[in-house]
C-alpha cells in the first residue's frame, strides 16, 4: 500500500469516527433551537434548512428575550443545576481528602491484621467498584430513611463520595507510589512532622494526580443517575433526574428536553476540551505502566 493511500485511509477512518462521536452532541444542541416542525422534518443544518428559534431556551427561562422576567421553570432548572454542582464538587472534595490520605497510608506504611496486608486492603477498596449500585440501593434507602437523609443534598454527597472513593484511592496510590520516599525522609530529618511532610512535600508533587482524580470524580458524580433517582424527590433532585423525568408524560417537547440535556452535557464538554490531559491521566492510572 502506498504511503499516500494509507494516509487517506487513516484520516477517513478518523473523520468517520469524529462524525459518529460529535453528531449526537451537535444534534442535542441544535434541537434546542428548533420548533416542532423542524424536529419532525428532521432538519439538520441551521439557517439553511430552518431558522434557529429561542423556544428551547425559553422553556427553561433562559432565552435572551425573557431572561429578565420571573420564571418558575428557570428557578426549577437552576435549583437542579446548583444541586448537581454542589453534589459533584462536594462529593469529589470529600472523596479526594479521605481517598488521598488513605492512599498515602497504603503506599507508605505497612498494615497487618492477621493474614491481611496492604495489598489486601487496597483490593478490598477496589472491590467496591465491582459492586453494582443497584445492590446497594435498598440498604441505603432504609439507612437514609432512619437517618432522615432522604432527599437531602448532604446525604447525596456522602453516597457519591463513597461511590468515587475506590477510584480516587486507586489513582492516588499509583501517584504516591511514584514519589520516592526519600523526599519525605529528608523532610522528617529536617524536623517536619509526618503530616508536615505529607502536606508540604508530597501533596505539591502529587497535585497533578489529585487534579486528575478530582476531575474524574466530578464527572462521575455529575452523571450519576441511579442513587439520585432513588434517594431524592424534590429538594435535592439533580439534573440527570430532571432529564430523565421529562420523558415520561404526554408528548415530549423536544426543544425543552434538548435544552436541559445541553445544560447537562455542556459543563462536561468544556471540562473535556480544556482538561483532557488530566482525564486521560486519571483513567490510565494503574492500568498502564
Amino acid at each position: 500500500m502506498s504511503e499516500g493511500l494509507k494516509k487517506t485511509l487513516i484520516y477517513t477512518a478518523l473523520a468517520t469516527w469524529t462524525v459518529i462521536a460529535l453528531f449526537p452532541i451537535f444534534w442535542t444542541f441544535s434541537t434546542t433551537f428548533k420548533v416542532a416542525k423542524d424536529v419532525q422534518l428532521g432538519n439538520i443544518v441551521p439557517w439553511w434548512q430552518y431558522t434557529p428559534n429561542w423556544l428551547g431556551l425559553r422553556s427553561i427561562g433562559l432565552s435572551p428575550d425573557t431572561i429578565w422576567n420571573d420564571s418558575t421553570p428557570r428557578a426549577e432548572f437552576l435549583a437542579r443545576f446548583w444541586n448537581s454542582i454542589l453534589a459533584s464538587l462536594g462529593a469529589s472534595l470529600l472523596a479526594l481528602i479521605t481517598g488521598s490520605t488513605a492512599a498515602y497510608g497504603l503506599s507508605r506504611f505497612e498494615y497487618r491484621w492477621k493474614i491481611w496486608k496492604n495489598s489486601d486492603i487496597s483490593f478490598f477498596f477496589l472491590s467496591q467498584l465491582i459492586l453494582p449500585p443497584v445492590v446497594l440501593a435498598m440498604p441505603f434507602l432504609v439507612l437514609y430513611k432512619e437517618l432522615a437523609l432522604l432527599d437531602n443534598l448532604f446525604g447525596l454527597i456522602m453516597i457519591y463520595a463513597l461511590m468515587v472513593l475506590p477510584i480516587v484511592i486507586w489513582i492516588m496510590r499509583d501517584q504516591f507510589n511514584s514519589i520516592p520516599p526519600e523526599l519525605e525522609q529528608a523532610a522528617l530529618v529536617d524536623g517536619c512532622s509526618s503530616w508536615g511532610a505529607f502536606l508540604r512535600i508530597v501533596v505539591p508533587i502529587a497535585l497533578p494526580g489529585m487534579v486528575a482524580a478530582f476531575i474524574l470524580s466530578v464527572i462521575l458524580c455529575w452523571n450519576e443517575y441511579f442513587f439520585a433517582a432513588l434517594l431524592t424527590s424534590t429538594k435535592a433532585k439533580t439534573l440527570p433526574v430532571m432529564v430523565a423525568s421529562q420523558t415520561g408524560s404526554q408528548g415530549i417537547s423536544w426543544w425543552a428536553m434538548a435544552a436541559i440535556s445541553s445544560a447537562a452535557i455542556l459543563p462536561l464538554i468544556l471540562i473535556g476540551i480544556f482538561l483532557e490531559k488530566y482525564i486521560v491521566k486519571g483513567l490510565t492510572a494503574g492500568a498502564v505502566k
Binding site: 460529535l22 442535542t28 455529575w222 421529562q246 440535556s261 483532557e276 482525564i279
Partner: peptide
Amino acid sequence: RVVFLLPFMLSPVAVGWM
C-alpha cells in the same frame, strides 16, 4: 483525542435521551 474522549464524559441519561 479530545473528540474521541467526549462521548465517554456525557451523562448516560442525556445519551439515552439524545
